[in-house]
Structure formats: structure tokens, C-alpha cells
Computed example of a mutant assay.
Amino acid sequence: MDRESPCASHISIFDHACSGLPKITPIPHDLICARPQPVSISSLAMHLTELDQECLLHLFSYLDKDSRRSLSLTCVRLRQVFLDPQLWTLLHFMSPCELRRDNFILGSSLRYLAVCWHSSRVKVCNIEDWMKTTFQRDLCRKHESLVSDFLERVCHMCPNLVSLNLSGCGHITDHNVINVLQSCRRLRSLSLENCARMTDSVLQAVVNHGNSLTEVRVDFCRNVTQAGLQDVRDKRPEVHLSALHSADMIPDSKPEEKTRIRRALQKFLIFS
């Protein structure tokens, strides 16, 4: 009896093992040679308004105030993002005139506020009122109440403010800053630079109302005295107080005091 060859035995075993597997249908030649259909980019792109509120707020946070407002005018959805108080945690203004615009929102989410005006006009604002010419008064009249009125709005609408920086705001008074200290109890940092009308009354308010304050700057405020600064250091030693040149500057004087000095000087020159 002839023995079955080893190769034939292996082939029969392989055929038996593969008999239970499904047959593979060959791919038609026309499908192999067919070109892939192009996919439209528009079908894959997501529209901006399809993003959720958190993503839109994050995108808006990279834009300046004017760009945010311009984008908000395109549709209702983006307008809602613009009006969301969570978007406005920080506001920075380069001049008082910017406070007139409608490209920002005041709300309870505001934490950091700065109004810094570095202009030659600040010198005019810092001139004592009784010494200003008619032209200088007319120049100041256009903006003298802008920052004061804005701070009043902050007092009513931004109770969670933690940092206030005012620079070159020559028309604000002690009353404006004291109101902020009384209304914004969480204020930790107060910076007043080149604000000519600030006096020791603000420093007294820091002692009485600034319970959360950790840093106070009153640089180049000519009507702040050394006695007022020392009072803050004695009563609030935990507050880091900076007063660059404030107590060393010549303070304002009343018109009648100037008149007496002038008359005394004239008499001295006449009889000398």
C-alpha cells in the first residue's frame, strides 16, 4: 500500500482547517482604480457660534475692548458673550475719554481696574484751579468729571474689586477714592500716582476703611504730608506703603495766601 506523501498530507490538513472560514470576495478592479472623492472643508468646519459659552469667553479674552464690541455686533449669540460679566474681570483705560465708549461692561466680576493717563494735558489738570487761565479751564471742563463719575459707577456695580490704579487723574478728589474704599471692601491694592487733589483724608480712609488693603501707593501726590504717611505706618503696619516724592513736593495754597505773600514781598522790595 502506497503511503501518502508528506506534502499532500499537509495540504489536506490546511484545506480542512480553512474549510470553516468565509470566502474572501476579491475587490473589483474598478473600485481599486477609482479616485477618492474630495471632502468639502465647509462640511468639516465648526461655526464659531457652535462653541459653548466657556470656549467663547476664552476666545474673547484675547481681544481688546474694541474688537470684542465689533464681534458682538455680528449676531445675538456673540452679543450674549460680550455682555457676560465673567468676560470683564480686568479693565485698563489709557485716557479719561475712553470712559465714554460703550465697548466694555461693568459688573460684579471686575477685579482689576486701571485708568492711566500719560499725556502733556495732565500738567494742565494739575494746575491749581485759581491759577488756570480761561483756555486751561475750558480744556479741563471737557473731561474733569469723567473719572469721578466713572468711579461712582464702580462703587455701585463692582463690589468685588481687588485692585485700583489711578494715574494722571488730576480732577478726582478725596471723596471719590473714599467712596471706593467704603464700597469695595475686598480692595487689596490702591495706587494713586500724580493725582494732585489727593490729601491726607485718603490716608485716613485707608486706616478706617481699607481693612483688606495690603499695598498702597501715593506717588507724586503733592498734597499728601509726611504726618499723614506716618499715621498709616503707625496704625496699619501690615500695609506696604509707597510715597515717592509725595511729602517732598510743594502743596497747593489758597489764593489769599498767595496774595499776602506777594504783598509782603512787594513791601520788602520797596523799603529795602
Results as ranks from 00 to 15, higher is better:
73 L>W: 03
265 L>H: 10
249 M>W: 03
167 S>I: 10
88 W>G: 03
81 V>L: 12
205 A>T: 05
226 Q>T: 06
38 P>F: 06
193 E>N: 14
17 A>S: 12
218 V>R: 00
175 H>L: 14
50 E>P: 02
113 L>F: 07
263 R>Q: 12
53 Q>N: 12
227 A>P: 02
153 R>M: 08
26 P>A: 15
4 E>M: 14
194 N>S: 13
96 P>G: 10
82 F>A: 09
90 L>R: 15
156 H>I: 05
54 E>W: 07
95 S>K: 07
206 V>S: 01
81 V>M: 07
136 Q>A: 12
157 M>P: 04
230 Q>A: 15
196 A>F: 03
56 L>Q: 02
21 L>R: 11
158 C>W: 00
158 C>D: 01
201 S>K: 06
133 T>M: 02
57 L>F: 02
122 V>P: 01
228 G>I: 04
268 F>G: 07
67 S>R: 06
94 M>C: 13
256 E>N: 07
111 R>I: 05
202 V>W: 01
250 I>H: 11
205 A>P: 01
137 R>N: 13
138 D>N: 12
6 P>Y: 07
185 R>H: 13
176 N>C: 13
76 V>I: 15
233 R>F: 04
123 K>G: 11
201 S>T: 08
173 T>Q: 10
220 F>L: 10
242 S>W: 03
190 L>D: 05
60 F>V: 06
21 L>N: 06
52 D>V: 04
220 F>M: 13
1 M>C: 14
130 W>N: 06
65 K>P: 03
178 I>W: 02
58 H>P: 03
156 H>V: 11
210 G>S: 05
133 T>W: 02
45 A>F: 09
107 G>P: 02
268 F>N: 08
154 V>P: 01
43 S>R: 07
166 L>T: 00
253 S>T: 15
19 S>T: 08
3 R>A: 14
219 D>P: 04
42 S>P: 05
7 C>F: 15
152 E>C: 08
209 H>V: 03
251 P>C: 14
209 H>T: 06
216 V>K: 01
269 L>C: 08
142 K>M: 13
132 K>A: 05
175 H>R: 14
148 S>F: 02
177 V>F: 01
15 D>G: 07
143 H>A: 10
37 Q>M: 13
144 E>V: 08
54 E>H: 08
15 D>T: 09
215 E>A: 14
213 L>F: 11
258 K>Q: 13
239 V>M: 03
247 A>R: 00
70 S>K: 11
188 R>A: 15
20 G>Y: 09
241 L>W: 01
146 L>V: 05
120 S>L: 11
130 W>Q: 06
205 A>R: 00
165 N>Q: 12
100 R>F: 05
172 I>S: 00
48 L>M: 11
165 N>S: 13
5 S>T: 10
243 A>V: 01
54 E>P: 03
19 S>Q: 14
131 M>F: 11
53 Q>K: 11
104 F>G: 11
183 S>H: 05
264 A>V: 06
175 H>I: 09
50 E>K: 04
23 K>R: 15
25 T>H: 08
83 L>K: 12
106 L>P: 04
116 C>L: 07
194 N>W: 04
269 L>G: 08
226 Q>W: 08
134 T>F: 05
81 V>S: 03
271 F>E: 10
7 C>M: 15
14 F>G: 12
234 D>E: 15
13 I>F: 09
